[in-house]
């Protein structure tokens, strides 16, 4: 029974990781912009939801569309900024967004103070019938949203014309250009969708962990790790990668102790990179390059 509970918790943690990573993965895949300020944007979404929920009594699920919309606008602004970055693009965006992360962190420090903020969930946990397994409302939302977002993104990428163009851009920019795809417009679309995903992750971040101005670094790290773990441009891989990491961490904590959590996830990550360098779902070789 304990093991089943552990698995439920691990899946919910993994879904949380995946949600944090989705926006980053899409933006990195489509535009190759290495957005280190990703975590700060998530926090910004979280703060927005916190303000809405606290001051205007908006119900939690009601904050999601608002933050998603707000973050789309911010992501488009970010795209306008990063468009001006010169070659080598990945490295330069990495450094520029490093600076941006510093600016955002300290602006948030001034705007929202250094206090920790959380969005409380008052509802009690649901006890699954005939078992003693507990499923909290937050866990339901996490697993549900991550599945929904992944499916929606998957359908968008696989079944629509826009998705085809986006995937072509992810796979080979030059070839996509030759095929008549407006790569610059695709980059705008990538940022917009990525922004919406970031806006989705923000409130959930505030509800699962807590908000404070310099908490973005951890979120960015999670996003980077899961993205490359999954293989760039592989949306289903993100969810699987998140779950794999969630399970690895939970079992480590349970079996070895909390102090070894980071070590085991690092080992899992490294061995995966060595064994399946193109991501967990890889079949054919193709990966993004952090430039040289």
């Amino acid at each position: 029974m304990v093991i089943l509970q552990l698995i439920i918790n691990a899946f919910s943690l993994g879904s949380f990781y995946a949600l944090v990573a989705l926006g980053f993965a899409l933006i990195f895949g489509v535009t190759h912009a290495f957005n280190l300020a990703h975590g700060e944007l998530i926090l910004l979404g979280g703060y927005l939801a916190y303000t809405l929920a606290g001051q205007m009594q908006v119900p939690f699920l009601g904050t999601l569309p608002v933050t998603a919309l707000a973050m789309v606008i911010i992501a488009i602004l970010l795209q306008k900024l990063l468009r001006r970055v010169g070659q080598p693009y990945e490295l330069n965006t990495l450094v520029v967004t490093f600076g941006l992360a510093l600016v955002l962190q300290n602006t948030m420090l001034m705007l929202f103070s250094a206090d920790y903020r959380i969005i409380q969930s008052a509802a009690p946990a649901i006890e699954l019938p005939y078992t003693q397994l507990l499923l909290t409302r937050t866990q339901v939302i996490l697993i549900g949203t991550s599945l929904l977002a992944t499916t929606a993104l998957y359908i968008l990428l696989r079944k629509t014309f826009l998705g085809k163009a986006l995937r072509a851009t992810i796979q080979d920019r030059e070839a996509a250009k030759l095929a008549g795809i407006n790569v610059r417009r695709m980059s705008l679309v990538g940022f917009a969708i990525g922004g919406a995903l970031i806006g989705l992750a923000g409130p959930l971040y505030a509800r699962t962990t807590y908000l404070y101005p310099s908490g973005g670094t951890e979120a960015s790290l999670i996003a980077i790790i899961i993205t490359i773990f999954a293989g760039v441009g592989r949306i289903r891989g993100i969810l699987l990668g998140g779950w794999a990491l969630g399970i690895a961490e939970s079992t480590t904590v349970y079996a070895l102790g909390t102090g070894w959590r980071e070590l085991v996830s690092a080992l899992v990550l490294i061995s995966l990179l060595l064994l399946k360098p193109q991501g967990i779902l890889s079949r054919k070789p193709k990966a993004a390059r952090l430039p040289g």
């Binding site: 990945e90 790290l221 980077i224 790790i225 490359i228 773990f229 760039v232 980071e262 070590l263 996830s265 690092a266 990550l269 490294i270 990179l273 060595l274 360098p277 990966a287 993004a288 390059r289 952090l290 430039p291 040289g292």
Partner: peptide
Amino acid sequence: LRGARFALATLASVE
């Protein structure tokens, strides 16, 4: 390993 995967592996290896 090359590129982003190398960067990530090194990042993890600090742990």
